[in-house]
Design a protein around this nucleic acid. Structure first.
Length: 430
RNA sequence: CGGAGUGUGGUGUAACGGCUAACAUGCUUGGUUUGGGACCAAGUGACUCCGGGUUCGAAUCCCGGCACUCCGACCA
């Protein structure tokens, strides 16, 4: 894509109403636009990153569930059925129709903050026999939570993206087996997103969902709002909320020997067991023809929060730094010549066209801007690799390439450069 | 939900209760420049968050509301 066609401009100044690193940099770089506290628009660059994150998650989820898309709105009745209408205080309600509106009916709805109430009746309608279990469905969707205090940019929003997966089983054992697989798939996802080595499976309270522990996936960042007790040797962590004498005795662990670190919850999985199937009366028929409650699990990942966490984790004083797997573009091509008729500019154009036609994800800075501005913007936007074409680089032998996170640059020939960015894989048909 | 702070052109800031609300940036036009947010010139752009009040006079003081940020509680 040509940068002159991006339409979104970077800003030198940090927004006055943001303090968190992720909100400041993402706003300055033109990835997000704030609408209100905890609610952001994803601008073209931001959407690219969000989509990349969600597509990685989707690819892994497709291995263990079917994707669907449930409604964001639901009738109050759904939530009354489980008794959670009053219980869940982050629940967001619409306040009815405008005065004078011709719309009748109850016109008060729930903006779903989670979907157990929705998915359970759907699955119950189709899956009634042990022969059809287990099954699992997931979706990637915008969720709403009336947070008492939205904060830290994308880290805690009132409207945010969530992947939620729900699994259904004949018994607890089968649920456990699936639960462990989900854990592993989750870690695969975090590795692919570039935060795997700093993400730990963390024992946490089950909240209203389960009497058991739930498992959070906590990524270490200084600005994380959770404190976890980390046992690196055994690769396990404990959320501070469960750290007490009782837990220590029950699990036979010594919290004093663990390091205390700040982290942000990027995923959370719960063994629901029969909590929802009982209250919603979802049973299946077993081999003996008896009705048995279905065992359930639920599994969440927050793609928009992950975007914020990755910014917090990798960005430096110059701007964003994206892992290759989710970067909005894989290459930032910059031409330092304002004269569109010059050989340098023409050469840059032709290189850009070649890469683009090959399918390389390249952002071409073709703007009529100064070198300093282009470099500053490039650092701010944070594409992993930068390539500069200028009179100077051509005289030195070709294209100057530099990693965003590195210091050193090197010159490679134009031919070599094109080859490098037009070979992607063995079965590439370009 | 408790506590604290802040609301001024698109953005970031300034202005003792007193002149036409200033500066930077952005944007427009013209010219010069071209390897780290370049320079010169001329333009453009604000009911100072909203509603009351005090005063000869309010961006500034007072009251109420709203919004945003931070600390805490909360986080299904």
């Amino acid at each position: 894509m040509r940068q002159s066609h991006l339409f979104i401009k970077t800003r030198k100044e940090a927004p006055a109403d943001e303090v968190s690193k992720n909100a400041i940099l993402l706003t300055r770089a033109g990835f997000i636009h704030k609408e209100m506290a905890g609610v952001y628009t994803f601008l073209p660059l931001g959407l690219k990153v969000l989509n990349n994150i969600e597509n990685i998650i989707r690819r892994h989820m497709d291995g263990i569930g079917r994707e669907l898309l449930m409604s964001a709105l639901s009738p109050m009745e759904k939530w009354q059925n489980t008794g959670r209408l009053e219980k869940v205080d982050v629940l967001m309600k619409t306040s009815g129709a405008n005065e004078g509106s011709k719309a009748k009916s109850t016109n008060e709805y729930i903006l779903n903050s989670t979907h157990e109430e929705m998915i359970t009746p759907i699955v119950a309608e189709y899956i009634r026999s042990y022969k059809e279990l287990p099954v699992a469905f997931y979706q990637i969707q915008t969720k709403f939570r009336n947070e008492a205090r939205a904060k830290s940019g994308l880290l805690r929003g009132r409207e945010f993206r969530m992947k939620d997966l729900y699994s259904f089983h004949t018994d607890e054992n089968d649920l456990k087996k699936y639960y462990d697989i989900a854990k592993k798939v989750y870690m695969d996802i975090f590795h692919e997103l570039g935060i795997g080595s700093d993400t730990f499976i963390t024992l946490a309270g089950g909240g209203d969902f389960t009497k058991d522990y739930s498992h959070e996936f906590q990524t270490l960042i200084e600005s994380g709002e959770d404190t976890i007790y980390l046992d690196r040797k055994n690769n396990i962590a404990y959320n501070k909320e469960v750290v007490n004498d009782e837990t220590a005795k029950k699990l036979n662990v010594d919290f004093n020997k663990m390091e205390q670190v700040q982290a942000s919850e990027v995923g959370n999985i719960f063994p629901l067991n029969v909590k929802f199937s009982e209250v919603l009366n979802y049973t299946y028929t077993n081999e003996s023809g008896e009705q048995k409650p279905v065992y359930m699990g639920c599994y969440g990942i927050g793609p928009s929060r992950i975007m914020g966490v990755i910014v917090e984790k990798f960005a430096d004083e110059k701007g964003l730094i994206w892992p290759e797997s989710i970067a909005p573009f894989s290459l930032h091509l910059i031409v330092l010549s304002k004269d569109k008729e010059s050989d340098t500019y023409k050469q840059a154009e032709s290189i850009y066209e070649k890469l683009k036609n090959h399918g390389t994800e390249v952002l071409f800075d073709d703007r009529d801007a100064s070198a300093g501005e282009k470099f500053a913007d490039s650092d701010l936007i944070g594409i992993p690799m930068r390539a500069v074409i200028s009179d100077k680089s051509l005289q030195a032998g070709g294209v100057e390439i530099k990693e965003r996170k590195g210091e050193k640059s090197e010159i490679i020939s134009v031919e070599q450069f094109i080859k490098m960015y037009t070979v992607c894989c063995d079965d590439c048909n370009h």
